[in-house]
């Protein structure tokens, strides 16, 4: 995955970038499956590798396949990226160890979900039970976000179409 990331950064041809990021998404999906997060892995494979690759390719046919020449000052973005990476790595130091059973996230509501989800909701897949039932409000908000994204795309692109019609 690191090789792919460097490839995406170095590659000037946007078509290769799209394909490489698709491969990256598939690798990410396998990592998620290895972490036993099959639901998320499925989403990553279908959305990240499938649909968004198609959409990016569609965008590429609109705007051409070569990346623009970089600006002269390339050190500022590099410095910024290094600072952000440093901050994120520093942040991960404060996280509990990987798969630590005493981590705070496993102490509050997770055991209750795991113990009682099947008897309370009758749904053996706890992920679905938590998503749709315990966290129903969050999922409603999520669906609304998707709806808003679609509405935004419709509003932006359709207005352009009307403007083009008016100009004719």
């Amino acid at each position: 995955m690191a090789v792919l990331t460097v490839g995406v950064a170095v590659q000037r041809n946007l078509f290769s970038v799209v394909i490489l990021s698709g491969i990256y998404s598939f690798l990410m999906a396998t990592v998620l499956v290895a972490l036993d997060a099959v639901d998320v892995g499925m989403t990553e494979a279908s959305v990240g590798a499938g649909v968004s690759s198609v959409l990016l390719l569609g965008a590429l046919t609109l705007c051409g396949g070569e990346e623009a020449k970089p600006l002269n000052r390339r050190w500022l973005p590099l410095l910024l990226a290094a600072v952000i990476v440093g901050a994120l790595v520093y942040g991960t130091l404060g996280l509990p160890g990987f798969a630590d059973p005493n981590a705070p996230i496993h102490m509050v509501v997770a055991p209750r979900y795991l113990e009682r989800a099947v008897t309370e909701t009758g749904v053996p897949n706890v992920v679905t039970a938590v998503l749709a039932s315990y966290r129903g409000y969050d999922t409603l908000g999520e669906t609304t976000v998707v709806f808003t994204a679609g509405a935004g795309v419709i509003a932006l692109l359709r207005r352009r179409r009307r403007a083009a019609k008016g100009a004719k």
């Binding site: 569609g58 709806f147 994204a149």
Partner: peptide, 28 residues
């Protein structure tokens, strides 16, 4: 619970596939 989850999931599926298709139509 089962009934609620069923309908909620159907709602999510309809919106998601609608939005994805709409974006695809728009771009293409």
């Amino acid at each position: 619970q089962l009934r609620g989850i069923f309908w909620v999931e159907i709602g999510v599926a309809i919106t998601v596939s609608g939005v994805m298709l709409k974006i695809f139509y728009m771009f293409a």
